[in-house]
Simulated scan of single mutants.
Amino acid sequence: MEKLDATQTRLTDLEIKLSYTEHQLEQLDAVVIRQQQQIDALIAELKRLREAGTAETQPGQRSLRDELPPHY
């Protein structure tokens, strides 16, 4: 009977550990999904900024003097 109790205790402990592991895996999965969404948003923003930067420099090819702050 002792061996059965020990086996049952070990099985219960393993089930508890599995439960915690599954929970942690779900949390990590949510973090990875959120990070991928942030990466996608950053890529889209970078693309938008690059397009805006090339659109500004192409039409008139402004000189660097036009970029000076007003106090000069």
Rank of each mutant, 00 (worst) to 15 (best):
R65P: 05
D40A: 05
A52P: 01
G60Q: 03
E26T: 12
A30C: 05
T54R: 11
I33V: 14
L68K: 01
M1R: 15
E2S: 15
Y20K: 14
A30I: 01
D40W: 08
T57N: 08
Q27F: 01
L28W: 04
Q35W: 02
T9D: 12
I33H: 09
A55C: 05
T21K: 09
D40M: 01
T9C: 11
Q61L: 06
E26A: 04
E67V: 02
L64N: 00
Q27G: 10
G60L: 05
L18I: 10
E15R: 07
L18D: 07
D66Y: 03
H71R: 06
G53Q: 08
D29A: 03
A55S: 02
E56R: 04
T57L: 10
Y72H: 01
T54Y: 12
G53C: 05
T54K: 10
Q27I: 04
L49G: 07
A6V: 15
I43F: 08
R50A: 05
E22H: 09
E56I: 00
L18S: 04
Q38Y: 10
D66K: 00
P70A: 02
T57Y: 10
D5L: 15
L68H: 03
E15A: 14
A52G: 00
L25I: 13
D5R: 15
S63W: 05
E56K: 03
E22T: 07
T57K: 14
Q58A: 11
